[in-house]
Design a protein around this nucleic acid. Structure first.
Lengths: 204, 204
DNA sequence: CTCGTCATGTAATTCGTTACATGATTGA
DNA sequence: TCAATCATGTAACGAATTACATGACGAG
């Protein structure tokens, strides 16, 4: 079985889902389209890792709720124990920002602003989800929501950090001439100095 | 042409590279194996986006150095102007940490420690590259190294942030026990057990 | 009245990885 | 001497995206 299969098992290890619902959850860890998910669910059921029951609904299509089997759990546990392979990041934005000089200053700035807007959206949605989980009492490491909590917190922190980087880039693009300030910002960023960078810049 | 093709053009927009060298650079923005790169370079040359010259070497295989053409530059500029599609992140570690409860506390902690070790490696290598670029005078936004500088700085900051998140997770995984200790102490207090405040504080 | 959500599936195509091939050089 | 780096290529396979299909419901 491939990684997608294990991602599905890991989701079903906590709660039963339909293929449609799985598609949404998977976005957080291993994005896949429904055209990949549905046939795989069928295969996994044939191999005995899953079972499903049909839930009839009114006013909307019936759904198949999949549950993990004992065999599925064993396969998952075995896979989880092995050390994970390296993550894969593919990001067109990075290719474009790399060639920022071809874009010209104005368009580069626009590109970064658009990135910030997307990050802001993501941050807003994540902070909602996070406070929702935090509201619940008894957030134990064994709780059903704990895994999601870790994932959302990570995504939130990384989004905030990338946003900070974006602003740093904007500064570079705009303050081309103020080299010393820029270098200082890079320095402070690398060592996480607890200094108010703007006041520092103001002093210079 | 696909995104990989544009990633190649964007690299060649700054400097000419061999297919082998491109493979390394691309890791930062759009990872690809040589088996994907070489045939694509041939196709792109057929379409007039690239040209190559053979550089003969002693003691090692000859190489083909590819350069972007005017047609290639135009194609790249056109593509860069469009807004980038969403990034794709696939990370087995996230699937595994999501199912941390199946792993047990000890193995979860081990998993996170291994992640930290990888991040540390990455951080060390990046900070070397960054200081190297910073050492150069005249780091203008139009400089050849500017794009790499932005990319490396971003990766560095995100790695540091993920590391901080890892430590936060470790704290969560470990503090489970402290909760019980606190509960026990509260319980002991109700019965006026002979515990002094200082040992209580020390345990917390 | 169109667009987004819910809900599942297949078919065609492209993208990406692994494996097959070759071979000299250098450092641990 | 074993692995890694340099260097390029093809073939087979598996993974992922896009397009084809269907259809009801509710919000704007």
């Amino acid at each position: 079985m491939n990684t997608l299969g294990y991602a599905i098992l890991s989701a079903l290890g906590r709660k039963s889902y339909s293929g449609y619902e799985l598609g949404k959850y998977l976005d957080n860890v291993w994005p896949a389209k429904h055209s990949q998910i549905y046939p795989l669910l069928t295969k996994m059921e044939e191999k005995g890792f899953l079972v499903h029951e049909i839930v009839e609904q009114v006013g909307r299509p019936n759904k198949k709720i999949f549950s993990i089997t004992e065999k599925g759990k064993q396969a998952l546990e075995k896979w989880i124990a092995k050390s994970p392979s390296d993550p894969i990041h593919r990001d067109e934005f990075l290719i474009k920002i790399y060639s920022a000089s071809l874009l010209g200053e104005e368009n580069s700035i626009k590109l970064v602003h658009e990135r910030i807007a997307k990050l802001d959206e993501s941050i807003a949605s994540l902070s909602g989800k996070i406070t929702e989980i935090e509201q619940m009492e008894e957030l134990e490491t064994t709780s059903k929501e704990f895994g999601r909590y870790l994932l959302f917190s990570r995504k939130y922190r990384l989004a905030e950090e990338e946003k900070a980087w974006c602003h740093w880039v904007l500064d570079k693009l705009k303050n081309k001439k103020i080299k010393f300030t820029v270098l200082f910002l890079a320095f402070a960023g690398r060592f996480s100095l607890p200094l108010d960078v703007f006041s520092w810049a103001a002093i210079i």
